[in-house]
Simulated assay, not measured.
Amino acid sequence: MRMSRGVSLFLLIFGIWSWVIWITFARNLLASDDAWNPDGSPTSFLVVHAALAVVSFVLGTIIGVLGWRGWRAARRDSNR
Score class of each variant (00 low, 15 high):
residue 1 M to R: 10
residue 2 R to V: 10
residue 2 R to S: 14
residue 3 M to I: 10
residue 3 M to H: 01
residue 3 M to T: 01
residue 3 M to G: 01
residue 4 S to P: 11
residue 4 S to T: 15
residue 5 R to N: 15
residue 6 G to R: 00
residue 6 G to I: 01
residue 6 G to E: 08
residue 8 S to D: 01
residue 8 S to A: 04
residue 10 F to D: 02
residue 10 F to G: 01
residue 10 F to T: 05
residue 11 L to H: 00
residue 12 L to H: 05
residue 12 L to D: 09
residue 13 I to C: 14
residue 13 I to L: 14
residue 14 F to W: 13
residue 15 G to I: 04
residue 15 G to Q: 04
residue 15 G to E: 01
residue 16 I to S: 11
residue 16 I to H: 07
residue 16 I to L: 15
residue 19 W to H: 15
residue 19 W to T: 08
residue 19 W to E: 11
residue 20 V to G: 03
residue 21 I to P: 01
residue 21 I to N: 12
residue 22 W to P: 00
residue 22 W to F: 06
residue 23 I to F: 04
residue 23 I to S: 06
residue 24 T to A: 14
residue 25 F to E: 04
residue 26 A to R: 01
residue 27 R to K: 08
residue 27 R to V: 09
residue 27 R to A: 13
residue 28 N to D: 12
residue 28 N to F: 07
residue 29 L to C: 03
residue 29 L to D: 00
residue 29 L to G: 01
residue 30 L to F: 12
residue 30 L to H: 03
residue 30 L to K: 13
residue 30 L to P: 00
residue 31 A to V: 02
residue 31 A to L: 15
residue 31 A to W: 07
residue 32 S to M: 08
residue 32 S to E: 13
residue 33 D to P: 04
residue 33 D to L: 11
residue 34 D to A: 11
residue 34 D to T: 04
residue 35 A to E: 03
residue 35 A to R: 05
residue 39 D to A: 06
residue 39 D to Y: 15
residue 40 G to R: 14
residue 41 S to A: 02
residue 41 S to E: 05
residue 41 S to T: 11
residue 42 P to W: 12
residue 42 P to V: 06
residue 42 P to K: 04
residue 43 T to Y: 02
residue 43 T to N: 03
residue 44 S to F: 06
residue 44 S to Q: 14
residue 45 F to N: 04
residue 46 L to I: 08
residue 46 L to W: 02
residue 46 L to G: 10
residue 47 V to P: 00
residue 47 V to C: 05
residue 47 V to K: 08
residue 49 H to N: 09
residue 49 H to R: 14
residue 49 H to W: 03
residue 50 A to C: 03
residue 51 A to S: 02
residue 51 A to F: 03
residue 51 A to T: 03
residue 53 A to R: 10
residue 53 A to N: 06
residue 54 V to I: 13
residue 55 V to I: 05
residue 55 V to T: 09
residue 55 V to M: 05
residue 56 S to E: 08
residue 56 S to T: 04
residue 56 S to D: 11
residue 56 S to Y: 02
residue 57 F to E: 06
residue 57 F to K: 07
residue 57 F to Y: 07
residue 57 F to I: 05
residue 57 F to L: 06
residue 59 L to S: 06
residue 59 L to H: 08
residue 59 L to V: 08
residue 59 L to Q: 07
residue 60 G to Y: 11
residue 60 G to V: 14
residue 61 T to P: 02
residue 61 T to H: 11
residue 61 T to I: 03
residue 62 I to Q: 09
residue 62 I to Y: 07
residue 62 I to G: 14
residue 63 I to W: 10
residue 63 I to D: 11
residue 63 I to E: 12
residue 64 G to S: 07
residue 64 G to E: 03
residue 65 V to H: 00
residue 65 V to I: 15
residue 65 V to M: 08
residue 65 V to D: 13
residue 65 V to Y: 05
residue 66 L to C: 11
residue 66 L to R: 11
residue 68 W to S: 10
residue 68 W to D: 00
residue 69 R to G: 13
residue 69 R to E: 08
residue 69 R to K: 09
residue 70 G to V: 00
residue 70 G to A: 07
residue 72 R to V: 07
residue 72 R to T: 02
residue 73 A to D: 05
residue 74 A to Q: 09
residue 74 A to M: 10
residue 74 A to R: 10
residue 75 R to T: 08
residue 76 R to A: 12
residue 76 R to I: 07
residue 77 D to Q: 08
residue 77 D to F: 04
residue 78 S to E: 13
residue 78 S to V: 07
residue 79 N to S: 06
residue 79 N to C: 06
residue 80 R to C: 13
residue 80 R to Q: 11
residue 80 R to D: 12
residue 80 R to F: 09
